[in-house]
Simulated scan of single mutants.
Amino acid sequence: MSLHRVKREDGSVVWRVRWRDGGRGSAERSRTFTRKSDAQHFEDELRRRRRLGELGLLIASKETLDEYVTGTWAPTHLPTLAPATAKVYGSLYDKHISPFLGHLKLIEITPEAISHWQAERLSDGAGRVSILKALSVLGSILQRAVESERLARNPARLVRKVRRPPKGEVRPLAPKTVEAMRAASTHRDATLISVLAYAGLRPQEALALRWRDIGERTTVINASKTGQRRNVRLLEPLREDLDAWRKAQPNVREDGLVFPGEDGERWAPDAYKSWARKKPRGRRKPGEKQRSGSPGPFARAAIKAGVPEATPYTLRHSFCSLLLHEGRSVVYVARQLGHDAALTLGTYGHVIDELDEAPRIGAEEAIRAARVSRVRDEAKSDA
């Protein structure tokens, strides 16, 4: 590494720093500065990085992956993640990474070692999606090790990933089906289903919704998943549902939750799982018969409507379908859903193709028609 004063043909003077990334035999690199102080600062930074690199490699030769994760990565990186994301990362690491790679020293985690790990997880029957998620977590951990100069490169980036399983096409529920589910639900659940199906909210976004977020024409969504805020169009039938639900609640406050739990606070994770579950809770012990139990309220409504495989997230697709049926652009739909246009096109491309030549129907008109049809069907059945 060296710093030189260079005089150019035009008489100007510059300062050039020369260095090699590796040892002797590696290519020489250089950078030129007009001010000597800038060149000196740059040279000092190179020397600092070289010293840290040597120290980092020394640490990496002795520190195992488990030691690095528990001692450095988890305390410094996990607190920056959303609680739900941190929990998923921890679960993936404990189940798929630590038992197989945790004992290896950082410098022993090579692309070949990771490839063997991936193949072994496949042969053990682990799902491809889980393996891909675990590899993403491992790559994130190793990238932090690179940034702290414990590793010279991230070996996870050189691994050929297992192919993702083909993704099934989403099948949005028609408004008539949504209305059948609402008819089989309590007032609260029917309104929650309306929010999911006619505003396209993620379930956790709906449960975090407060009355102050609901305006005359739009609803403000603070998405915990993306950390972004968006305004979602408030369809008139949904606004009517929300108005009716609000009138049925005593002592409603502007900052109150639209769908509070039994204690007035946000639903606990177990409460939501109980509401949405399809199977009885609990695991069967050896020798024990399958427990008889009923599905949760949402699943019961889905069964009565003839769509037993539906989940709360399925209703998000219904909102997208309503907008596409109106003739809205992919960009518009993506903004309403809170993700990018490429994801919208990849997920709903077949829906777009199917509706390409279909007559345009307004979302509000489609919902009202479904409600009129349900009233007629109920009248016929009563007769």
Rank of each mutant, 00 (worst) to 15 (best):
H4W: 08
V17E: 02
T72Y: 09
G264S: 01
I367Y: 04
D270V: 06
S274C: 09
R5D: 04
H339A: 13
E365R: 12
D243A: 01
P269N: 04
L46V: 03
W117C: 05
H41W: 02
G282T: 09
I114F: 04
P280Q: 08
G261S: 14
P359N: 14
N231W: 10
S274F: 12
R202G: 01
A184Q: 09
G56E: 11
E378F: 15
R283K: 15
L92D: 07
I97T: 03
R229C: 01
S148E: 15
K304N: 05
R328D: 06
E63V: 12
R360L: 11
L242W: 00
A84R: 00
R316T: 07
E149I: 06
P155S: 12
S381K: 15
G139Q: 12
R266G: 09
V88I: 04
C320T: 15
R24H: 10
I193G: 08
K62L: 11
R300M: 09
E147V: 12
R31D: 00
T186W: 01
S140A: 10
E254C: 10
T110H: 15
V375W: 14
L52Y: 06
D94V: 02
K289E: 10
E147G: 03
G264A: 00
H317T: 13
S224T: 07
Q249Y: 08
Y272C: 11
L322C: 10
T226H: 10
R291A: 08
L201G: 02
R20N: 02
P155T: 06
E205N: 06
R160G: 12
R121G: 07
V137H: 07
P269K: 02
R18Y: 01
G296I: 11
E43C: 00
E326A: 03
V137A: 07
K176T: 06
L158W: 08
L201W: 02
P75R: 07
A184G: 05
G22Q: 04
W267A: 05
Q336Y: 10
S318H: 05
E216S: 05
L78A: 00
L173V: 09
A126G: 11
K105L: 05
R376D: 10
R5Q: 06
L55T: 06
A271Q: 13
D66M: 04
K247Y: 07
A206M: 00
N222V: 11
A248P: 04
S318F: 05
L138F: 08
A119L: 02
D377S: 12
V159R: 10
A301I: 14
G23H: 02
R18H: 01
K87I: 00
V331Y: 13
V220Q: 09
D21V: 13
M1Y: 01
G168R: 00
P312C: 13
E205S: 06
P308E: 10
A342W: 13
T191A: 04
N154M: 01
R284H: 14
D44A: 06
E112C: 08
A27E: 14
R374M: 09
K289H: 05
F259T: 02
G296N: 14
E309I: 08
R48P: 00
K380F: 09
D213E: 04
P175H: 08
L92C: 04
I141A: 07
G296A: 15
